[in-house]
Design a protein around this nucleic acid. Structure first.
Lengths: 226, 226
DNA sequence: CGCAGGATTTGAACATGTTCAAAACTGAGC
DNA sequence: GCTCAGTTTTGAACATGTTCAAATCCTGCG
């Protein structure tokens, strides 16, 4: 993903050490207020060593984002294995990410920095983050696997849920209520609503709406394998 | 909004001149690739003069964003005055912004840079941009004024439409189709759908859904005057 | 051992956003 | 016209992200 991954064990350790020190400092002082000098100082290496392992300061954030994604997948797989109904699985997926992010709201914000800049390697909707996005959507795919859904919804739902999660994550960052319970409740409510709509989507009155939504999204190339 | 506005006529002119030169360069080379030195050079002033008028490079982008908003309001007021039906008015509001942004997709992306950082003065959802956001939502409020809507929808709709617009703007930035027609079609379709749903919202089957949506959003503090 | 070749690490530069104290300018009041 | 207070403008620093060529370290091999 970045340069070449370190090829020796020592290199791997150094990389990890720099990463840990950087996260510590980011958590203490925020991303912008932390200088590469400070990171290097705490990690007891030269400033340029950090650049040997990370292409730039923001790449450290991307590594953090990947770590969060790893963790969410671990947590969710464990929960999904214990079955649970659909709603519980979806809620687990959402809240898992919130739980992981809750101490790092300042950090996570940086992940969204290049949302509007398609070419930027760190754009959270761009090519540089495709892998992580695919995995993130995959969690929802796994959550709804086993449900008997029409094929079109099978494609639509994971992307829709992922979008919902991204939106809620932003709200989460702005939410100053204790433990971000407002966002968490909204997440629960939105999921409940989604499931209700899923049921309603079969009603005849709503058939044209459903068709319309799907064709719109397909035309806009917002669904996998257009 | 920034420091104090320039207080003499000459100052106003200089500010404007620096702003124009900066936009030229941003359009030619993109935001990040343009240095303050270059801006100052083209404007034929000292680098620090730019900092006298703008607190930083990104403040120039915010000024640009404000200029776009001014222009959208002018355009929309003119169109709204010629009445037109609801759908036409909403479409006009959406497309007006697209039209203004279409030559500046690289610039506009920067507006979204601090979306995930509530404290940042340029966060497009934060306190520092409240004024511009209020005006942006206001355009939709004006577009639907004159419709006879239930009071709750009267509050909900402008915010919902504004959110839709923000989301579509991001898609717009990623849309590589000629003239971004994909996004424009999606916008049209989404509006049509919104109006259809508005009509459906009165159906008895959907009453609980509507109530639920509203109470959720209200609880999440996502509606004006809680 | 001693060396070759790669991986790691370094320190010294560089580029550029930002700050600041001082200089230059301007215009109102005398 | 002169003075003075406020505004504008400047050049020189500074802070910090980033680059790079060289030095050092390691490891497998003869």
């Amino acid at each position: 993903m970045f340069k070449t991954e370190p090829s020796t064990d020592k290199g791997e350790q150094t990389r990890r050490h720099i990463f840990d020190c950087a996260l510590e400092l980011f958590r203490e002082n925020g991303f912008d207020a932390t200088t590469m000098q400070e990171i290097a100082l705490r990690a007891d290496v030269a400033k340029s060593a950090a650049y040997y392992y990370f292409p730039g300061k923001e790449a450290i954030i991307q590594a953090y984002y990947e770590a969060v994604q790893d963790e969410q997948e671990r947590v969710c797989r464990r929960i999904f294995a214990g079955s649970g109904n659909l709603k519980a699985r979806l809620a687990a997926a959402m809240h898992a990410k919130f739980d992981l992010a809750k101490e790092d709201r300042k950090l996570l914000g940086v992940v969204f920095r290049y949302t509007g800049e398609p070419e930027h390697p760190l754009s959270c909707l761009g090519a540089g983050t495709e892998e992580i996005r695919r995995r993130s959507i995959g969690v929802f795919r796994e959550a709804i696997a086993g449900e008997r859904l029409p094929k079109d919804l099978d494609q639509l739902l994971p992307v829709a849920l992922w979008s919902l999660q991204m939106g809620l994550l932003i709200l989460f960052l702005y939410d100053r209520s204790e433990g971000q319970r407002r966002t968490r409740r909204l997440a629960d409510g939105a999921l409940e609503l989604t499931l209700k709509l899923l049921a309603l989507a079969k009603l005849p009155v709503l058939k044209p709406v459903r068709t319309k939504v799907l064709s719109l999204l397909r035309e806009a190339d917002l669904l996998p394998e257009g």
